[in-house]
Nucleic acid binder design. Structure first.
Length: 359
DNA sequence: TCTGGGGTCCTAGGACCC
DNA sequence: TCTGGGGTCCTAGGACCC
């Protein structure tokens, strides 16, 4: 018996999420160029978290240093990041998504999620979803529809803002084939440059590339993975298994470089303390620690140490301080990061995750 | 403007073992 | 005299995403 229902992947992405939340709180900002980043202080080192569409029209984007952004848009309203407000709004959005009929929801971040549904008319489903999100949160979103997670994710970009777009095996290459490889989710500037070294510049060229060439350049896993990305292939099933963190970390860029061993040690103790609070909330053993050091101006080193699962809090701290001993003497430290890797239950690594190996 | 902070996974090379 | 071959574990570093 044919019900007419087909499995679909929907990718939901809130439009200019952070800026939109700010406009809800400050209605007078509607229609103005709004830039959210750091503590909203142009005197500090910080980057743009989100820019409203009005600000983006001046060439401002996420990740851009705040001071550059402010220079491009002299009339911009600069606001500090208010993580609590965005988290609260995000919970409202995700709760709305989970209420959609028959939906399996896999959250990807503050402002985006995959939905797995069975439907004969995914466009109508998507429009209903957009309406529900707007009514409950007053936020607009775009929806990508796909037959794989990759295609749904990429489709969303063509739907923005407030739209719906469908990408499947039938139109993937027509839409994406002539675009540069960097448009693919998971291909960044470094990989696209290495690909162009093999005369691979478009998605279609990568989709048809020689596997051995890719393996030789990127290794046995990444090579084939890039090719499958270019074909839009991969997982078709949305996995709502609760997230299990692999580790926790904290890092801080100092406004003034640390110059003495005592300053560095005090900073590491503080970072370790904050990370261990996160770790202990999960009651899972630590199996490794990493100290990340950015020497001024921009040289990054990391030092790693495996540790036994039986290590207690003091042992973790002791290992962290041991790693401090590797910091180059007399070289100014601009950034410190500390990461604790946690053990995972058996089998936890095998499940789908929104990452390379899971696809 | 010299480029935040919290994550994930992959690869290469050395150490060590048989 | 010069160095095989496979396997695993660990460390350092790279790349990407939101």
């Amino acid at each position: 018996m044919d019900s007419g229902l087909t499995p679909w992947v929907l990718h939901v992405d809130l439009d200019q999420f952070i800026a939109a939340v700010e406009v809800l709180r400050h209605p007078e900002l509607a229609g103005k160029p709004v830039i959210v980043g750091g503590r909203g202080d142009l005197a500090e080192r910080a980057v743009v978290s989100t820019a409203s569409y009005e600000a983006r029209s001046f060439g401002v984007g996420s990740g851009m240093p705040l001071r550059i952004a402010a220079r491009k848009v002299p009339d911009a309203v600069i606001l500090p990041v208010d993580a609590e407000a965005y988290t609260a709004a995000s919970h409202e959005v995700m709760a709305t998504l989970r209420e959609q009929p028959g939906a399996t929801v896999q959250v990807l971040g503050w402002d985006e999620a995959f939905l797995g549904i069975d439907s004969a008319d995914p466009e109508t489903y998507a429009r209903n979803l957009q309406r529900a999100v707007l009514e409950r949160t007053r936020l607009h979103c775009s929806v990508g529809i796909g037959d794989t997670l990759v295609r749904a994710k990429v489709a969303t970009g063509f739907g923005k803002p407030r739209g719906v777009f469908r990408l499947t095996a039938a139109n993937w290459l027509d839409v994406m084939g002539n675009r540069p490889t960097i448009d693919l989710w998971g291909v960044g500037s470094k990989v696209s440059r290495r690909l162009s070294g093999h005369a691979i510049t478009t998605v279609a060229e990568l989709a048809a590339a020689d596997t051995e060439t890719l393996v030789a350049e990127f290794g046995p896993r990444m090579g084939p993975w890039y090719r499958s990305l270019a074909r839009g292939e991969g997982a078709r099933v949305v996995d709502d298994t609760p997230w299990l963190a692999r580790g926790h970390s904290r890092e801080t860029t100092y406004q003034q470089d640390l110059r003495t061993p005592a300053e560095v040690e005090a900073a590491v103790r503080e970072l370790v303390e904050r990370v261990l609070q996160d770790v202990e909330a999960e009651a899972r053993p630590v199996v490794g620690v990493t100290l990340k050091v950015r020497y001024a101006p921009f040289v990054t080193r990391s030092y790693t140490k495996k540790i036994p699962e039986t290590a207690d809090r003091q042992a973790v701290l002791w290992r962290a301080l041991d790693l401090v001993g590797r910091i180059e003497a007399g070289r100014p430290v601009r950034l410190l990061g500390f990461r604790a890797e946690m053990s995972l239950p058996d089998g936890a690594r095998d499940r789908h995750t929104p990452t390379r190996s899971g696809w």
